[in-house]
Simulated assay, not measured.
Amino acid sequence: MNRRGFITGITAMLGLARPISAHQQAAFALPGDFLPTLVNVPSILAAGEIHVFPNEFRLFLTLPNSRALRYTVGVGKPGLYHSGLFTVGAKRKWPRWKPTQAMIKRNPNAYAQYADGIPGGEDNPLGARALYLFDAEGHDTYLRIHGTNKPRTIGTAVSNGCARLTNDHVADLYERVPVGAPVFLYDQVVV
């Protein structure tokens, strides 16, 4: 065991607190029903599609034989979420993030400082992976299915329109979804 491993082990054993860096948050475990789960889906859903149901905070990746992988997601705030049919037009590992002009206009105190963008990495709001959603004409919509370094936001409506998964879950989804896959974002019903 090296010195660092020894110190980390002793610290953990003694329960000593260590400062948390910007990209580390206090331990958080998702509820069990938020974990990816293999489920049955209606046979009318073709394999290889993504379906996001914002009111249930669920994303389904359809598989053959009327099965799907169900993930729990965070979604856009009411008024910022956009429903429709999209296509995965691009995929990125540790993507660069840049707030849209609409985000900067809505909240300049939070976003203007990032107008030039942030390189990919652990502190980046898009997390470990991102699927870029394109419209029927092949244009980037600036909507993303992406990771997050804030797992406590899973199962909530807090984003600027995108669907977010934990970094582990988006990395799994990323490997399963090809460019060109159809994405259905269903209507968000505000109660």
Rank of each mutant, 00 (worst) to 15 (best):
A102L: 08
Q188F: 14
T11E: 06
D135N: 14
S21Q: 07
G84Y: 00
T148Y: 10
A46C: 00
L126M: 15
G79S: 10
E49D: 05
K91W: 01
A163E: 06
G5F: 01
N40Q: 12
G76E: 01
Y142F: 14
A68F: 03
N55F: 05
Y71T: 06
T141M: 10
R3A: 14
E122D: 14
Y142R: 04
V191K: 07
L143R: 03
F53I: 13
Q113C: 00
V41H: 06
I145A: 03
Q113L: 05
S21H: 06
T153E: 07
G138M: 09
Y186Q: 13
F34K: 05
K77L: 14
R58I: 11
N107A: 11
A171P: 00
F28S: 02
W97I: 13
S21G: 14
I154T: 11
I154H: 07
H23F: 12
V158S: 11
N55I: 08
Q101A: 15
P54G: 03
Q101V: 09
G5S: 10
S66I: 09
Q25H: 14
G121T: 03
R18I: 02
R144C: 07
F86C: 02
I7D: 12
N160S: 15
I118W: 06
L131F: 11
V189C: 04
H139P: 00
H23M: 05
A128E: 14
Y81V: 02
M103G: 02
L59D: 06
D116T: 13
P19F: 12
P78S: 05
F57G: 07
G120V: 01
G147K: 06
L133R: 03
Y81L: 08
H51W: 14
P19V: 09
R4M: 08
F86L: 07
L45K: 07
V189N: 08
V158R: 07
P36N: 12
T141A: 04
G74N: 10
Q101P: 08
T37P: 01
L143I: 13
A17C: 00
Y114E: 00
K150Q: 15
R3E: 10
P119Y: 03
